[in-house]
Every structure is written in structure tokens, then in C-alpha cells.
Simulated assay, not measured.
Amino acid sequence: MPPAAGTGSLTAAQWFTALSAWEVMALGLVFFSLLYVGGGVLMGALTSGLARLGRGHTLDERPLTRAQLHAEWRQSFHSILIFGTGMIVPWGFVQVGWAQFAEQAGALRMALEVAVLMIWNDVHFWINHRLLHTRALMRFHRDHHRSVRTTPWSTYSFHPVEALMLGNVILLPMVVHDFHFWSLAAVPVLSLLLNVVGHSNYEFFPSVSDTHPLAASRRHHLHHHRPQGNFGFALAFMDRLMHTSAASRSDTRHRVP
């Protein structure tokens, strides 16, 4: 294995590129496992703490079944296998010369790159999510919608086909532009954080509108209850543009009868 980034003259991009295929896949499995477990634990702690303080409220108060949690963990394990071993694809793009990392990038350029990538992430997600709701592909998306009451552990709870569709988000950008290594690395981290918010089953900002950037958890909660709309990811612009928004009623909470 090459020297760790920062211990010699290698940059993070050079270190990553110099890894073997097996090392890349092992790194990917550790990386996505830590993201998933860390995101789930932290979101659970955050929502529990806010509930104790009386800030916001739970969206769906029905009891959570052990069967749902077990299914989410099992399906998420398969997704982590796909996402983790799939890191060999962008690594391979660099190896064969289809893409390369920018050698130098200032803070402003990196911030702009991350912003563009996250906007593309929303577009990519809307396209694939909308396709998964077609008659031809819905059978691959039903696994995710079995989490009627979402949890932070629903975040990676996908059929393998869905995981493959959603996991290729950085490949096209890599081909059309030389991004800095850390700009690309930020995408799965920010995506997981925003996705875990969307599946948190918690209303953080009850007073904002459905289309507000801070209403992501409410929008995705509505999607799990009314799957005909709200196909977007963290933002609402694709649903507004494509007229696929699912308007909420006056109270979005699903209380126990």
C-alpha cells in the first residue's frame, strides 16, 4: 500500500490513484459503512434530543416494527457492498485516462465544484427516482417503500438495481470536468447527510413551506405516504420544474389512532 496522504509528497488524489483495485474496494466498504452507521446514530441522537427539548416533532408516530428495521439493515448491507466495491469504477476511470483530478484548486473553486455537484445530485436523483416509479422499474423500488414510516436506517435500504442506479452520480461529471479530489469525495458525505435528514421522520422546521430547503424531511415523508409526487432529493426545484410536487395537508403528522 502506498504511503498515507499527508505523510510524504503524495496528495490525496495521487494516494488514491496509486492504490490497488482490492485496496480501493476495501477502502470503499469501510468508508460507506462508517457513513451509514455514523449518520444513523447521529440522526437518532439529534431527533431524540430535539424531541426532549420540544423543538419540532415526529412526523409518523406509529410504532416501528423490528421486521422493518431488520429489512432496512439487510438491504443497506447490500447497498454498502455495491457502493463500496463500486469505488473501483471512478478509480478505473482515472487509471484508463477517461478522467483525472485537478492538481490545484483554491477554496472558492472547490466550493463552486461542490455546489455544482450537489445540484447535479438532485437532478440525477430525480431522473432515476422518477424512472423507478414507472411500471417497468417499480419492482426494484418497492423494497425502499416498505419503509412506510421512514427511519435514518432507511437511507441505504435499496434493491441492488436501485443502488446501482443511484450510485453512479459522480461518473458523468468526472468525464466532463477535472474536479478536485476532495470536491468529489464531498458528494457521498453530503448526500448521506441530506438523505438521512430526509428519512429522519422528523419535522425540524414546522413553520416553513413545503418547497423550502429546510423542509426536506417533510417532503420525503410525504413521498413515502403519497408516492405519486416529491421525487426530488434535498431540494424542491426539480419537482417544481417538472410539476411533480406533492402538496401537504394542513398537518403532515401521522398519529397513532
Rank of each mutant, 00 (worst) to 15 (best):
S191A: 15
H254C: 11
T58I: 08
L81R: 00
H159N: 13
W153V: 01
A107L: 14
V41R: 05
A186N: 13
P206W: 11
P213D: 02
L184R: 10
P160Q: 04
A67K: 15
L137I: 07
F231Q: 06
Q68R: 10
V41Y: 08
L235D: 00
W120N: 07
G97H: 04
L69A: 07
S157T: 04
G40Q: 03
M118F: 06
G229T: 12
R139H: 11
S9R: 13
H243V: 10
F31K: 00
G28E: 00
S48K: 13
Y202P: 05
N128G: 14
M43P: 06
W98S: 07
T211M: 04
G56Y: 01
L27C: 10
N230I: 01
A107Y: 10
F83W: 12
R135G: 07
V41F: 10
L69F: 09
T155R: 02
P2F: 13
G49Y: 06
L64I: 08
L164F: 08
L222H: 01
W120L: 08
F204E: 02
H145S: 00
I80F: 04
A12V: 03
T155Q: 09
A234H: 14
T65I: 03
S79K: 02
L35F: 00
W120K: 12
L10I: 02
A105T: 07
L166K: 14
R130M: 08
P63F: 14
W15V: 04
G49M: 00
T252E: 15
L27D: 10
Q104H: 14
R255G: 03
T151M: 09
G86M: 00
V256F: 15
F32E: 00
G229R: 13
I170M: 11
T47K: 10
R130F: 09
V169E: 05
F179T: 00
Q68L: 15
F16E: 01
A13W: 04
Q104A: 05
L117M: 12
R130V: 04
L131C: 07
M87Y: 03
V30H: 12
G229L: 05
S9H: 11
L241V: 01
L137R: 01
F140T: 03
G232H: 09
G28M: 03
R240S: 10
M110I: 14
P2S: 07
H199P: 03
V197K: 01
T252P: 15
G8N: 09
P213V: 07
E72G: 02
G86R: 00
L19W: 07
L53V: 06
I119A: 11
V114S: 14
S245P: 02
A234I: 04
S154G: 00
V94S: 09
D178Y: 09
Y202M: 05
T7I: 06
M242L: 15
F158W: 15
H129F: 01
H177T: 04
R226Q: 14
D122L: 05
E162F: 03
L192T: 11
R149G: 13
A45C: 12
H224P: 04
L131Q: 12
R55S: 13
E162H: 05
